[in-house]
Amino acid sequence: MNDQSTPVARQAATAQAPAEPALLPPTDVIEDAGGITLLADLPGVSKERLHVNVEADTLTVEGEIALPTPEGMEGTHVEVTRPRYRRAFTLSKELDAAKVSAEFANGVLKLRIPKAEHAQPKRIEVKIA
């Protein structure tokens, strides 16, 4: 992206394809009968700088790292090379995107995406004729 682009142009560019490079947070995805639990590691992100969005069938997790750094600090060894995380997931139809709940503590995001009512497992009783 051109650095001289206007904020509007920049916004449009991010809306189409996120151009700013970001780290991919390590994630666990666990499915049980009632839905999906997603755990993502976002160390250094405070609650205010975390954004979880569901748009159509895409779930996006984005967070910005903010660390308390003393003035004039120079990095001498850097493993976390970028100040933000981003990762997107495609949700499947049986998941109820409207009922996503989120918890965030100590840099770990826990998302619970329940399955839609009609997709809940149902036990079909077999009647003996």
Binding site: P70, G75, E79
Partner: peptide, 30 residues
């Protein structure tokens, strides 16, 4: 790094220095 392949370990570590201190950030969530 002198201690071999440091990348990819847990926790990831960033080190910074100022004239008055050495600052270490270990990314160890949860």
């Amino acid at each position: 790094s002198i201690r071999g392949l440091s990348w990819g370990g847990f926790p990831a570590i960033n080190v910074g220095s100022t004239p008055r201190s050495v600052e270490l950030y270990a990314f160890a969530p949860g």
